[in-house]
Amino acid sequence: MVIQDFERIFQEKIDNEIKIEPKDWMPEAYRKTNIRQISQHAHSEVVGMLPEGNWISRAPSLKRKAILIAKVQDEAGHGLYLYSSAETLGTSRDEMINDLHSGKAKYSSIFNYPSLSWADMGAIGWLVDGAAILNQVMLCRTSYGPYARAMVRICKEESFHQRQGFETLLVLSKGTKEQKDMCQDAINRWWWPSLMMFGPKDSESTNSDQSMKWKIKRKTNDELRQQFVDMIAEQIKLLGMRLPDNKLQWNEERKHYDFGEINWDEFWNVVKGNGPCNKQRLAARNKAHEEGSWVRKAAKVYADKKLKHKKEKIA
């Protein structure tokens, strides 16, 4: 068979909704795109632990603390599921971690914003996890088998994240004046960065076309963003709060909410590494990795030693 035959069979599988599995033939660009996207996704889960980890020791009650720890632990698991599925494409864990720590690999820009108050834990769960979920529900049907399976597992765990976030804000929204202000302030700061999570506008996105043809993605950035706006614009009514956008308005003709223009300069700035916390996040990751280095080495030496003893016994 020549390469065109492989490519045709591959595309036929995709068109017929047959998942691509690791041993199957795939175009090199499909492999690379998946490695890039899955590892970025994994990095986002891992770096995403930092803004919330920041509040574990300061959670207002034992209940909230236990919930927050459980959520952050879930995100670590999500990172692991995703790294594992990227590894099936021939990259290594070490390589991915190195790329993250050197700043070469990207992760979701949302995590380069600071978590300044307790209400941010609510806003992150509701808005940030809420935005992530829309993307992830779509990815449950992505064409690469191991990625799709990881997403199914992740989606099962995510709904608790969004619900606990909304509930946190709901409690604040019924509290004292200070608590209400805190709630509104968190929404004000997280709203626009959450909209940016869906990425550049379709008219400017270079990745979408091929990714759609290969069914890596099934919805465009703008479609997902609109879905998010429609969902949040309704939910916020229950909080008695408002979204910081004067142009937000139901459009009867489109049957969707209209919304204002995103500050794309800010978006690209944060992507390029100049967000409020980019340096801090990478420094925290590097520090944790370096400080854990002796543990990783010791465990390996110990395991090798045990194995050697076992072999000597048998011999």
Binding site: P22, K23, W25, E87, T88, L89, G90
Partner: peptide
């Protein structure tokens, strides 16, 4: 690797 990486001439 979980799920296999091909090792021979499959493309």
């Amino acid at each position: 690797f979980y799920g296999d990486i091909p090792e021979d001439n499959t493309g």
